[in-house]
Nucleic acid binder design. Structure first.
Length: 834
RNA sequence: GCGAGAGUGGCGGAACUGGCAGACGCACUGGACUUAGGAUCCAGCGCCUUGCGCGUGGGGGUUCAACUCCCCCCUCUCGCACCA
């Protein structure tokens, strides 16, 4: 036993030896390996899995420390805890590394995984390592391919030609988040729109449910829920046809303000609107309109995304007719109308829409108010659009109706007349999952000249990405890999070509939480029974940067997998904790800023327990954490203090007198015993209510401070051994989830035969925690003037008397009239004087 | 512009349901031990004009009592951004 053998003088907290010892043991014994057990309550805690970029960074340290405390705490509370880890292993950086260093992406990825796994183990994280997954393995993505085919069959996957963000110099499609101010995030060259075929997932079919089920996510931060709600962006209104004047055809518009339809004075089309061609063909405006469109599109491309260009447009020369009034409406092309939203055509109501208003004023178009607030609007003199509520005016039979009522009435009328209907528009787009990249999961489709896009038969799955087994082949995109590319059609047997796009890596991360349930299953994506037991994830933890993409896709996938019969849950993550960033010198850590702290160095210098403690102590988890090297030092000091404190009081562990009799305790012992139980209560509350480990830790620090005052050789009155022992054991029990190696070592060193991890979380004894004296605050006119120490049972009248008799109080009350005295039981007295 | 969150000592952060503002830690100051101290221990530590003093971004309000509730304003962070 390392501790007992050393003489007190030389005692040192040797974290290297201690951490290595316990990690070795955990590696051998696998104490955190779990299986489904319906007899026990389960708890599934999950941290967002990392991309194997090469090394763990400090944000990972924080994320996994938080998750590990929760996992260990829940185990001590008797839960059967699933706590897995894996690798989000497909992605662009591997290809970049391949280009730069000539290593195959697979080799690069697997060696990174091996290194980072070692780093995680050096942190002492309590994962069930037997469940580790890597998404780049065919054993993983074969199920994704299977799901893809099932969705294809259900019509939830489709292929279409669309405009994508294309980087010429990298020769690839970029995801929207990889386009920064119109430029490529890697090479900074201009991103251009390009029309290409791609595969899409019909997330819009689930828009309604994705929106409605946000209400079930009570355990999510409000912020994330709101962001998702905005992202989905439901708006309800009227889709309505405006027939063209003097020719066949119509313009369909969408509006959320059908109540303003009598105020339409012109029509605006997006520059990309397909109708424009036929409207202007052969007219004298043709050249001018074409020139305008060309310039607008160019401008749109060049414009930095964070500024709005001035509104401008051009008259096409054509008119359409307002279906309600038959009035002629001039048709404009306008630079602010988006083809991607609604129908690409907007009925313009300058009196009630600020953009239309600005446009109308600029081009001298009429402004006609039709929704009148109390103070009557005048189209000629208005200075801004009125977007508020009001009563309809100049609106035919609808005049006089309040706007809200008018909306419904006008929609009903349009439906009855057959030129419009109630319509809902979504901001959410279908999810384009095709990537022209090598390092991703192949899309299991074969293109045949006569049969078209043919699904790969299920029994031929997985479609394995070529060249991922050593010796590694080329990392070139799949269409350059002849033997992969060329195949035969499963339907007609003719020569055919495989799909060469791979899937967006967000696909893999959308369902990994489910694969952890039965990661080695070769018969299905998930073992149904185990899934029923373990899912959903009780606590998910990760960065807020995934608030939309990953978390929305995972919710979507959960519903897809449910509808395919794999899962029986509606939502994947019952509770979500979005941890803040780790910052240094006021800025996010980044290589370019040169303020990066390498966890490796820290663990070398202080040990994992200290680093974990600091990551938990410096800020509550949801807030940004300012990295402070001196703060780390302070945590290290704390560990050393506790170490010495326990070493100096080993004697109290030798006696095994367990009973603590409240009535027999000396006042100092009673006080320590009380503090011990108050600390248990406080730490438990901090963890249970909001995972505020920072306050939990400071609670334990207070207890340690108090023990220090009454323990050891220097103490004036040595504490009773049983009380001291209880206090010290409590310190170890409460700190264990945060600093497991340290606490296990001391637990063993103080003569316990069973490991600390098998112990239950301590229960607090309310009667032990109870105070028998109270400090009553005495205020005069609301200001603190004195304090009274009274027994708990002191009555109100007595407290009043004592307060008035208090010397410091009477110096304020002397010569004044006491107006009233307010007594708050157990807390304070406030004497109000004039 | 819209939406969300935040603003407390030199710093990170505490404060239950309206009831002691500044727990805990860092930094700093003084002392002890010491050849030495960047170890350890002890003490101090919001501000000032030192008093019926001031103080939780600013201004008002409700209240016996406000970091906490209400109104107005300022600043910062994040997200979305011409969404019809």
């Amino acid at each position: 036993m390392t501790i007992m053998d050393t003489s007190r003088q030389d005692l040192k907290y040797d974290f290297r030896q201690i951490e290595a010892k316990w990690q070795r043991l955990w590696q051998e014994e696998k104490p955190d390996k779990v299986s489904a057990d319906p007899q026990r309550p389960k708890y599934y805690v999950l941290e967002m899995f990392p991309y194997p970029s090469g090394r763990i960074h400090i944000g990972h340290v924080r994320n996994y420390s938080i998750g590990d405390v929760i996992a260990r705490y829940k185990r001590m509370r008797g839960f059967n805890v699933l706590h897995p880890m894996g690798w989000d292993a497909f992605g662009l950086p591997a290809e970049n590394a391949a280009l730069k260093h000539g290593v195959h992406p697979a080799e690069w990825t697997y060696s990174n995984i091996a290194y980072m796994r070692g780093q995680l183990k050096a942190m002492g994280l309590s994962y069930d390592w037997d469940r580790e997954i890597a998404t780049c393995r065919p054993e993983y993505y074969r199920w994704e391919q299977r799901v893809f085919l099932q969705l294809l069959e259900k019509g939830l996957v489709y292929r279409k030609k669309t405009t994508v963000n294309w980087c010429e110099s990298c020769a690839t499609v970029l995801a929207r988040e990889q386009v920064i101010n119109g430029c490529c995030w890697r090479c900074d060259s201009q991103v251009v729109p390009k029309n290409m075929h791609g595969w899409f997932l019909k997330i819009t079919d689930y828009a309604e449910e994705l929106l409605a089920d946000l209400d079930k996510l009570g355990g999510w931060p409000e912020k994330v829920v709101t962001m998702q709600r905005n992202w989905i962006g439901k708006s309800q209104g009227l889709a309505c046809d405006f027939p063209l004047e003097g020719r066949d055809g119509k313009i369909t518009i969408f509006t959320t303000r059908p109540d303003t339809i009598f105020g339409v004075t012109f029509m605006s089309l997006a520059p990309e609107h397909p109708l424009i061609d036929s409207l202007i063909a052969g007219t004298e405006q043709e050249a001018a309109v074409r020139g305008f469109i060309e310039q607008t599109l160019l401008e749109k491309q060049r414009m930095a995304l964070d500024q709005e260009p001035e509104k401008h447009g051009i008259f096409t020369g054509a008119y359409c007719l307002n279906p309600f009034t038959g009035e002629r409406v001039p048709i404009y092309v306008a630079n602010f109308v988006l083809m991607e939203y609604g129908t690409g055509a907007v009925m313009a109501v300058p009196a009630h829409d600020q953009r239309d208003f600005e446009f109308a004023r600029k081009y001298g178009l009429p402004v006609r108010p039709v929704v009148q607030p109390e103070e009557r609007l005048d189209g000629g003199s208005m200075e801004a659009a009125w977007e508020g509520d009001g009563v309809l005016a100049d609106s035919g039979t609808f005049s006089g109706l309040p706007a809200a009522e008018a909306k419904q009435a006008i929609i009903a009328e349009a439906e009855q007349q057959g030129f419009g209907k109630a319509h809902t528009t979504w901001r959410l787009r279908d999810w384009g999952i095709s990537r022209q990249r090598y390092w991703g999961a192949p899309i299991p489709v074969i293109h045949c000249e006569s049969c078209g896009a043919v699904p790969v038969p299920a029994e031929q799955l997985p479609v394995v990405l070529p060249g991922t087994e050593p010796p590694y082949g080329s990392s070139a995109p799949l269409h350059q890999q002849e033997d992969f590319y060329t195949t035969t059609c499963p339907k007609c047997g003719q020569p055919a070509k495989r799909e060469t796009d791979t899937m967006d890596t967000f696909m893999e991360s959308s369902w990994y939480f489910a694969r952890y349930i039965s990661p080695r299953s070769e018969t299905g994506l998930i073992d149904h029974e185990a899934g029923t037991y373990w899912l959903s994830v009780d606590q998910y933890i990760g960065g807020v940067e995934h608030a939309i993409l990953h978390l929305l896709y995972s919710r979507f996938f959960t519903k897809l997998l449910r509808d395919l019969g794999y899962l029986s849950i509606d939502e994947p993550f019952s509770n979500l904790l979005t941890q803040g960033m780790v910052i240094k010198d006021g800025a996010k850590m980044s290589k370019s800023k040169g303020n990066v702290v390498d966890p490796n160095d820290l663990i070398q210098q202080y040990g994992a327990d200290t680093v974990r403690l600091f990551a938990l102590f410096a800020a509550p988890p949801e807030r940004d954490l300012e990295w402070n090297p001196q703060g780390v030092e302070g945590c290290f000091r704390f560990l050393n203090r506790v170490f010495r404190l326990i070493q100096g009081n080993l004697a109290c562990f030798e006696e095994h007198e367990d009973r603590i009799d409240l009535d027999q305790l000396a006042p100092a012992d009673r006080q320590l015993h009380r503090k011990t139980h108050q600390t248990i209560r406080r730490v438990t509350d901090s963890i249970e209510t909001n995972f505020h480990f920072n306050t939990a830790i400071s609670g334990v620090m207070e207890l340690v401070n108090q023990v220090s005052a009454v323990a050891g050789e220097d103490a004036a009155e040595p504490a009773a051994p049983a009380v001291l022992r209880e206090a010290l054991e409590t310190v170890l029990l409460l700190l264990f989830p945060m600093m497991p190696h340290f606490c296990e070592e001391l637990w063993q060193g103080t003569g316990h035969s069973q490991p600390l991890r098998t112990q239950s979380w301590p229960e607090f004894d309310p009667s032990a925690a109870e105070e028998d004296e109270l400090t009553i605050i005495v205020q005069v006119n609301g200001k603190l003037r004195s304090r009274l120490q009274v027994p708990v049972e002191t009555g109100e009248e007595e407290i009043k008397t004592l307060a008035l008799a208090d010397e410091r109080v009477s110096s304020f009350t002397a010569g004044r009239t006491v107006q009233k005295i307010i007594v708050v039981k157990g807390k304070l007295v406030n004497i109000v004087i004039r």
